[in-house]
Design a protein around this nucleic acid. Structure first.
Lengths: 321, 321
DNA sequence: TAAAAATACTCCATAGGTATTTTAT
DNA sequence: ATAAAATACCTATGGAGTATTTTTA
């Protein structure tokens, strides 16, 4: 479901990230390409949407307007396409196996929830989810071992199509007795000197967190590095060290009180994307599951408690005005 | 303002024309390209939008739904882009000369009405409209003698971008004493044997009318051919012969009673398109005028009298359900 | 001075054209 | 038999990458 209006989507992403490079990364294209495409959009409209004479750039009045309108259009249009699309798979006639390869830390909860809901709707489809390291995932996608993959910071590989899925908040995670456990929020700077457990730096997440710490002049003492979210969780639980982890991934432990997740400022998020092999579109079953994921991802990382999806409004629209 | 969603626009056009080839002509692309693009859209959605097992083809249920949704999306989105776009031209700061070259029969009324309204809004812009023959227009566009051209049946020239403007109804036009003058509608077949004045066959309109007559096994006796709408009008007025002309172009004469325009069945229309030079987008003033034209064209060829734009609904939405 | 975006130039993936085959009336 | 759409194949354009320059803080 890659679909049209790629440039409009890109602009929305650029506006949200307040950065061409970041947005480009989300789409797995180069900064140059992002710059050119937005520039071309502006030329077509005959208006500057972005005021680049200040950093970080700001949207012009026209840009504000365009952003609002574009989001609205995309929302409606995508919803419509999904609806039409779903007519294709005649009820429960779809069958087969959907194979997905995802990063460990991709928010297993979302994936399995979606899987369960999906398998109920499509009883003749079974979804197999495997958890792997990024390069294994890329390889599996390229070799057609899986229908699609889920990664963060798509490495803008050639030969894969990138589809932004959502952005995941990162939080400071520690045991309930840690000094930070009772805080409502922690600034990056306050982490200096604290003992930390990190991701391997050969993982994109690890590199991104390093960059974030450097950007914010934070200098925690990294005591260990692991390549696996579960190992990190375990290590944090049994030591007096903290880690920076996707908040969703520790929701269960937070609920049960075995871990604490503290908001980190400035906000650090990590893009989660779907990657597919270029050219060959996914089969009907795989496509249906992808759509299901995308719909699910529209909802925020709000507590799974009650409430409408409006929980997102706080973040998402605040940016846009 | 060519803009995104070209494929979606194409599908809407295909649905409206009930023909790939006709729609392709509207966009100045080949039938092959139209077929491929719609096919690709269907593959992406995983649904057939068009049932090709019957001729003329019909939309599937999914196609119906998509058509409705797509039209709505395009309407809103284009309106939004226009609004944003208009922010660019800071009020009356736009200035310069807009040069347009149009076919004689392009509905001079619409053009000059739009010009008048436009020049009022943008006092520092003057619009120069020239009327020429198609090849002159193409040449002028390519040579940058004009900002854009208005033609019918765009010859899918390389090096020009085509933008459908609207479709114009053709009618049987004759003097008030002609045998057909009092009829409410005339079928093509009934024209057989009648004396007719036609367009030169080196004009696209002329060829199209010939094809139409042949398709409908109508064999009028063509007594003269001219390359100029005004000459044709004159000839019809002073002889007992009829012509097939754009209805809009004779509106004034019909109102004053000097000519009669009779509906022709099956309907014959002619696409009017804007052509611009590839690559080089129009300047701000030219773009603004193009937008103005496109907005104006949204309205139907309804009598300039009162009434909402719903006049068109009869044709336009009847098709779509 | 450093980081981010714009630009220059090159390449290749893909949209589109031509010619042909298939399909429906 | 005929006209329209699908398909095969090839070509060319424009989007995207790399490297570099410009710009702002």
């Amino acid at each position: 479901m890659v679909g049209p209006m790629q440039t409009v989507r890109l602009f929305v992403e650029v506006a949200r990230c307040r950065s061409f490079s970041k947005a480009a990364a989300m789409f797995g294209i180069s900064q140059s390409a992002a710059s050119q495409r937005v520039g071309q959009l502006e030329r077509r409209l005959g208006v500057k949407l972005i005021d680049r004479s200040v950093r970080p750039f700001e949207l012009t009045q026209a840009g504000d307007l365009y952003l609002i309108g574009a989001k609205e259009t995309l929302r409606r249009f995508d919803e419509m396409e999904r609806k039409v699309s779903s007519l294709g798979l005649k009820d429960e006639a779809v069958e087969g196996v959907v194979r997905v390869s995802a990063i460990y830390s991709s928010g297993i909860d979302l994936l399995s929830e979606t899987r369960d809901a999906f398998e109920k709707k499509m009883p003749r489809v079974s979804v197999e989810i495997g958890y792997d390291k990024p390069d294994t995932i890329y390889q599996a996608v390229l070799d057609e071992k899986v229908d699609f993959g889920i990664v963060s910071y798509p490495d803008r590989f050639k030969k894969v199509t990138v589809q932004p899925l959502r952005e995941e908040d990162m939080a400071v995670v520690c045991g309930p007795d840690h000094a930070l456990a009772k805080r409502r929020a922690v600034s990056a700077g306050e982490l200096s000197g604290q003992e930390m457990i990190g991701f391997d730096t050969d993982l994109p997440v690890g590199r991104r967190i390093n960059a974030y710490l450097k950007e914010n002049s934070a200098t925690p003492v990294v005591k260990h590095r692991f390549d696996n979210l579960d190992t990190l969780k375990g290590a944090v639980a049994v030591t007096d060290r903290f880690a920076i982890l996707p908040r969703r991934a520790v929701q269960r432990e937070v609920d049960s009180g075995s871990l604490c997740a503290v908001r980190l400022t400035p906000k650090l998020t990590r893009p989660i994307s779907i990657i597919t092999r270029r050219g060959a579109g996914p089969g009907p079953a795989a496509k249906a599951f992808m759509d299901e994921l995308l719909v699910g991802a529209g909802t925020p990382d709000a507590p799974p408690a009650a409430g409408k999806t409006d929980g997102r409004a706080g973040r998402d629209t605040a940016d846009t005005r």
